[in-house]
Design a protein around this nucleic acid. Sequence first.
DNA 1: CAAGAGATCATCT
DNA 2: GATGATCTCTTGA
Length: 202
Amino acid sequence: MKNDKSVLGRSFFEHKTVVVAQDLLGKFLVRKIGKNIIAGMVVETEAYVGPHDLACHASKGKTERTKVMFESAGTWYVYMIYGMYHCLNIVTEDKDYPSAVLIRALEPVVIPSLERRGKRGGLLSEPTNGPGKLCRALKIDKKFNCTSAVAKNSQLYFEDRGVKISRNKIVKAKRIGVDYAGKWKDKPLRFYIRGNKFISKT
DNA sequence: CAAGAGATCATCT
DNA sequence: GATGATCTCTTGA
């Protein structure tokens, strides 16, 4: 089915974090704001894979801030960083196991039905090539923290629009901004689509 | 072009 | 009181 669009459900996120991080490439992040819909294709992610991962916020234990990562798969983890930017993560794997995928970059997409009506609503006018920037563009803030991406009526969720990213298009790289994580800082847990123009960094 | 600093605040010690 | 899963602007070679 060419035009088959399906919303990703909980089971999609209940696999190993490194697998989910790669499977999310080519999926679409959809944001509903009132009657407007804006969306982007996921082109870059990072995996934070559990309590033993020193770069994972939850590696220091379960606290008020990190308890979201212990939630069931498909829960949003949104937090503020450096006082000015939000980062968007989707919780993965089993409940009580702290792991998540950070959405680092999107490729802007035009929603045809909105464009036809002459609206600009479908086109992202702000850059989305970085975790802080995409949150600004999609107006994501802490209201989404601890909410579900797999619930009906969610205003923020993923869709599969049939785009398939072949294995050899996926680049593995070390994560960014985690120099404090000791031997974990160089682990190849960042994934992005080879040649895509909307990657946060090269 | 590369490198460095500042902005600014929730969270943890 | 320190620091960070960032971004942008300024400085200087």
